[in-house]
Design a protein around this nucleic acid. Structure first.
Lengths: 202, 202
DNA sequence: TACGCAACGAGACGGTTCGGTTCGTAAGTG
DNA sequence: CACTTACGAACCGAACCGTCTCGTTGCGTA
């Protein structure tokens, strides 16, 4: 990953010539999001995105190395996707807060599930992008949970039947499973069930 | 889905003309499996499958309605994928047995993870096939777990923190999450962790 | 103000890939 | 032998990728 700003010490802003258009970038991200949401990922070609965005294909190739990266940026922009790592002082409240925040975000922005599905598909189809997706996105989300769990373990209120890794596996496993495999909503009942499972000890 | 054998009452075996070649069917399934395992799903086109199988494309179109269905048949043939629903008499042993059987199958047949990934991708790209996949495969697997859990609930040894739906969500959620999102093995440690989580009560 | 430079939208281009169909032949059935 | 259906191969058109070339546009600098 030596692309981007890894250009010596300071990122040279741009010296001369016409600057890149932020409007075009925005239009591209919007068009990609809409196509994925409305017509499914199979319909999202670079060609179609460019056409819908009212943009030349070259502008897209200049800005992103692959289709997946467009979607990844669209996702991270979509909401303040940064779900803050809660700190309620105890494990049950932390885990419940994280679940509530995550579910609320999905419900609030209905395109997010479509983007997530598309990204996971692209990660399977393009292994190089897949690595990027795992490193830059999936592991970040996972780290939020393991941070909470580690904190709980130190505090001593993590149930003996739970460890940090399995907690992350369970939470994101269920979320992705529902996104991809079963058409089930992210409702309070699921949050209840998961929180109960992960906070009940012997 | 009115294709296939939904042809009146009795499935007419075949009356006249050249019979379909079972060898061709086998070669197609084998070729599809190998391409997916060796080159990834992105490389698995009908064209390549036909070429590798030494078969005309028409023979494929005559036998399966879509690429996903080829892979689905390849998967169900691959092993006796039918993992028997355990009945060990108690919930912890049942759940442990199901996990062990499932993990052992994946370890024994290394193409199975590739096929599963490919099927999940295809389910996202082709919604019509996706419905078929969910109905004919995913729900069956899920039912195995809910059957165990229902039995345990009746017996009274299902922990209060677990219910049938969440047990299935957790087990298959984690399995699919590991297949698609994190490069982690299906080892005894995972089975231990999951079994502990699902069998420990307050 | 005038000039130069890079990005812009649009689209042409060559090339590849693929899905689906057509064609003449092969293999069974009656 | 006549008939029927499957067979492999070849063919066709559409879609798309990535590059390239236009003439144009906007910004920094001379």
């Amino acid at each position: 990953m030596t692309t981007g700003t890894a250009d010596g010490a300071a990122p040279p802003p741009r010296r001369t010539g016409r600057p890149r258009s932020q409007d075009s970038r925005d239009a591209i991200l919007l068009a990609a999001t809409e196509i994925v949401a409305e017509q499914g990922y199979a319909a999202a070609s670079i060609e179609k995105i460019a056409q819908r965005a009212g943009v030349g294909k070259q502008t897209i190739y200049r800005g992103w190395p692959s289709k997946g990266d467009i979607l990844l940026e669209a996702l991270t922009r979509k909401a303040d996707l940064y779900i803050p790592i809660p700190d309620e002082g105890n494990w049950p409240a932390d885990i419940r807060r994280l679940l509530d925040d995550s579910f609320a975000l999905v419900r609030r922005a209905p395109q997010i599930p479509d983007l997530l599905r598309a990204l996971m598909v692209e990660a399977q189809l393009d292994p190089v992008f897949g690595d990027r997706f795992r490193t830059n996105f999936l592991q970040h989300r996972r780290a939020a949970v393991t941070t909470l769990a580690d904190r709980a373990a130190q505090r001593g209120d993590l149930p003996a039947s739970v460890n940090a890794d399995v907690a992350a596996d369970v939470i994101y496993g269920v979320i992705w499973y529902r996104l991809l495999a079963v058409p089930a909503p992210f409702d309070d009942r699921l949050a209840d069930d998961l929180a109960t499972l992960l906070t009940t000890g012997p």
